[in-house]
Design a protein around this nucleic acid. Structure first.
Length: 257
DNA sequence: ATGGTCGCGCAGCGA
C-alpha cells in the first residue's frame, strides 16, 4: 500500500497537478493539506471518478485537510478528539483506510518566535499527541502524515548553520514534535535516508528550488508495525517542477500488505 | 535591492 502526503497550497489551483500525480504515482491513500476550500467546494465526485473516496475538513480560504483513499475510508474524525475545545482551524482529519488509521495534519506555521501563533503551534502539537492517546493504541497500525512546519533536525534545513532563532528549527518546536513521536511514531523517510539536503518544501521566491534552499517539513510518522512494514519512501521532487507547482513536494511510503 | 512569489480575491495578509 502506498500512502502519500502533500501540501497542495490550494486544491483549486492544483487540481490538474494532483490529477497528474495520482495517475503516475498511483497512491492508495493521499493526505492533503491546505486545500483552501469549504466542504461544499471539495471535488468529491471528481476524485470518485478516479477511484478515490474522500473525506474533507475545510473552512474556506485558509487551511483545509483531506484524505483520499482507494482502499476505503471508515469512521472519519474531523478535528481533535482530545476532550478540549474545538480547534478554530481546519487542520486535522483522521480515518481508517485499508486497516491503517491515518491522519492528515497541517501544523500551524508559528509565524515568529514571539508571536501568539507560535504558542498556538506548540499547543497544537501537544493536542496532536493527546488526540493519538485518546483515539489510538501504540500497537495499532497508525500513520500520521502532513505538513508539520518543523524540521526534525539540522539535516532537514538548507542552512543548518544559521544560528538566528527562527521558526521551524527552534528547540521548543523540535521538542514538541519529538513528544508526538515519543508516543510511538517513526519518521519513516528519515529511517530510510541519512543524508542532508533532502527537502520537501521550497519558497517560491529567490529561485529557492533550483538553489536547493529548502526544508524537510512534510513528514510521514508511522507506528512501529507500519514503520517495520515500510520498504520504500520518497520525496517526489519532480512534482515541484513544471507549470503551477505547489511549493511542497509529495512524500510517500510503500508499506507491505 | 531590507525585496523577491504565490493564492485568495480585489487590499493586503499568510506562507
Amino acid at each position: 500500500m502506498r500512502i502519500a502526503t502533500w501540501n497542495v497550497n490550494s486544491l483549486n489551483a492544483r487540481l490538474a497537478r494532483v490529477d497528474e500525480w495520482l495517475a503516475y504515482a498511483e497512491p492508495d491513500v493521499v493526505l492533503l493539506q491546505e486545500t483552501k476550500m469549504s466542504d461544499q467546494q471539495f471535488p468529491y465526485g471528481h476524485f470518485a471518478a478516479q477511484g478515490y473516496d474522500s473525506a474533507h475538513h475545510g473552512q474556506g480560504r485558509w487551511n483545509g485537510v483531506a484524505v483520499l483513499s482507494r482502499v476505503g475510508i471508515e469512521d472519519p474524525v474531523v478535528g481533535f478528539a482530545d476532550g478540549r475545545e474545538p480547534d478554530p482551524d481546519a487542520r486535522i482529519i483522521s480515518a481508517r483506510c485499508g486497516g491503517i488509521t491515518v491522519s492528515s495534519v497541517y501544523v500551524p506555521n508559528g509565524r515568529a518566535l514571539d508571536h501568539d501563533h507560535y504558542r498556538y503551534k506548540l499547543d497544537w502539537l501537544g493536542r496532536l499527541r493527546a488526540h493519538l492517546e485518546a483515539t489510538c493504541d501504540r500497537a495499532d497500525q497508525v500513520m500520521v502524515g502532513g505538513d508539520f512546519n518543523v524540521c526534525p533536525d539540522g539535516r532537514d534545513a538548507w542552512d543548518p548553520d544559521n544560528t538566528a532563532p527562527r521558526t521551524h528549527v527552534s528547540d521548543r518546536e523540535r521538542e514538541a514534535l519529538q513528544a508526538v513521536c515519543d508516543w510511538g511514531l517513526v519518521d519513516v523517510f528519515r529511517a530510510h535516508y541519512d543524508a542532508d539536503g533532502l527537502h520537501s518544501w521550497w519558497d517560491y521566491r529567490e529561485g529557492a528550488f533550483y538553489k536547493r534552499h529548502g526544508l524537510r517539513i512534510d513528514l510521514l510518522l508511522a507506528s512501529a508495525s507500519v514503520a517495520a512494514a515500510t520498504h520504500f519512501c520518497l520525496i517526489d521532487r519532480n512534482a515541484r517542477k513544471g507549470t503551477k507547482p505547489s511549493d511542497h513536494a509529495p512524500v510517500f511510503a510503500d508499506i507491505s500488505q
